[in-house]
């Protein structure tokens, strides 16, 4: 009897200790999470994570650079010649094969939207320059064509197209 009572009291005690420990662990986790989460982008940053831009003011053959999430973004109004040139390139000539159609939005072929950082080491390439009628990065000599695809030089990838869509014919929403 005595041992049995002792046994059950031990069990009760162990249960209490485990329960207290478990609740304490939950509490600790609940405290730690906000202390980490505060590092995430705050509301004012998130509010600018998605921006709208009216492209109608850009004449054909010109580009503008806009800022999105702290990065420069090229928006280029391409000429027909540029589009045709880009489409004439066989995929086998490309280091990072992508068709021109994959880099634009259907029905808006003249608009090219790309993050303006060279995929090599992040410099901003110069527009309407280089050997392929596109962009040329002066830092380490990467040449991009009129669809922003890497053609020659150390950069491994095409200029990155950010997530965007046409809200209307002239308004794009990036992000």
């Amino acid at each position: 009897m005595a041992t049995q009572a002792e046994h059950s009291s031990t069990n009760r005690r162990d249960f209490l200790y485990v329960a207290t420990g478990a609740v304490g662990a939950v509490g600790a986790a609940a405290v730690v999470w906000p202390l980490i989460n505060q590092l995430n982008p705050d509301a004012s940053t998130l509010a600018l994570a998605s921006i709208e831009f009216d492209v109608s003011a850009i004449p054909e053959g010109q580009s503008v650079t806009i800022m999105w999430r702290g990065l420069p973004v090229f928006v280029r109004h391409r000429t027909t010649a540029e589009i045709e040139e880009a489409r004439a390139v066989p995929l086998s000539d490309l280091k990072d094969p992508e068709t021109d159609a994959q880099r634009i939005k259907e029905g808006h072929d003249q608009w090219l939207v790309m993050i303006a950082n060279c995929t090599h080491l992040g410099c901003i390439p110069v527009g309407e320059a280089g050997d392929f009628d596109g962009w040329f990065c002066p830092c380490h000599g990467s040449h991009y064509d009129s669809a922003g695809r890497i053609r020659r030089g150390p950069a491994p990838k095409n200029l990155v197209v950010p997530p965007y869509e046409f809200v209307s014919d002239t308004l794009i929403q990036i992000g």
Binding site: L16, A19, T20, V23, G27
Partner: peptide
């Protein structure tokens, strides 16, 4: 609520 519950458990312990 949590603190009151936890304080109760801590006290019992």
């Amino acid at each position: 609520l949590f603190l009151v519950l936890f304080a109760g458990l801590m006290y019992a312990t």
